[in-house]
């Protein structure tokens, strides 16, 4: 565990908390893509199948449970409790366009052809693109609330910090995982345009509005 990995995990946790708090305190999930949240729940479910078979540390197990619980709590808030506020007209991304290629690729390019390993790989590929419905929704409406921008910034920072962690681990331990690293780079690149808008607009107190 190094500072970049810990920072990544905490950014991820912060993103999840920001999202839950936003929905809970405003009693609304307007502007949030339920499709992306479904993909994140699917990601965590597929990745943490090893929760009971591969013990790494108490820290890892606790975080896995927290991520899983938060993912399903978010889905519950969006699709049950505050369903009326869910902006489904703008959340039109087709999930099968992301799930099927991620599943196909996981079957072909993986570290080992076993159920747990293919599911882990699927989760890595799916996570890389899981934010697309959310970014698509922001581009469709042309804007995002500040709190949604903070959520996206924290969520994007998480994988960016993991990349630094992987570079660090490569040099300090000789550890590398090509699948996670390449997918992590793709994931981070998807946020670049958003990062630019966040830094140039939101941090200066303006609303995130896309150029017309």
């Amino acid at each position: 565990m190094n500072i970049f990995r810990l920072g990544g995990d905490l950014a991820h946790l912060l993103a999840i908390i920001i999202l839950l708090l936003k929905i809970w305190t405003t009693r609304s999930c307007a502007g949030i893509s339920g499709k992306s949240q479904i993909l994140f729940a699917l990601t965590f479910t597929a990745r943490y199948l090893d929760l009971f078979t591969n013990f790494v540390s108490v820290y890892n197990s606790v975080m896995k449970v927290v991520y899983l619980a938060a993912a399903y709590a978010t889905l519950y808030l969006m699709y049950v409790k505050f369903k009326a506020t869910y902006d489904h007209n703008h959340d039109t991304f087709r999930l099968e366009f992301l799930i099927l290629p991620a599943a196909g690729l996981a079957l072909i390019i993986n570290h080992e052809f076993s159920i747990i390993e293919v599911m882990w790989t699927f989760s890595i590929y799916l996570e890389a693109v899981a934010i697309l419905p959310q970014l698509f929704m922001v581009s469709k409406t042309g804007e995002a609330e500040s709190i949604t921008s903070h959520y996206l910034f924290a969520l994007g920072s998480y994988r960016a910090l993991y990349i630094v962690n992987w570079v660090y681990r490569y040099y300090s331990e000789g550890f590398y995982d090509m699948i996670a690293t390449l997918a992590g780079v793709v994931q981070t690149v998807l946020y670049c345009d958003f990062f630019y808008l966040y830094i140039t607009k939101v941090l200066k107190g303006k609303k995130l509005q896309l150029p017309a």
């Binding site: 990995r5 995990d9 991820h12 090893d50 591969n54 790494v56 890892n60 975080m63 896995k64 991520y67 570290h111 080992e112 390993e117 882990w120 993991y162 962690n165 995982d177 996670a180």
Partner: peptide
């Protein structure tokens, strides 16, 4: 390499 994949990250 045929070592078991080691996923110690989240």
């Amino acid at each position: 390499d045929d070592a078991e994949p080691d996923h110690d990250e989240l």
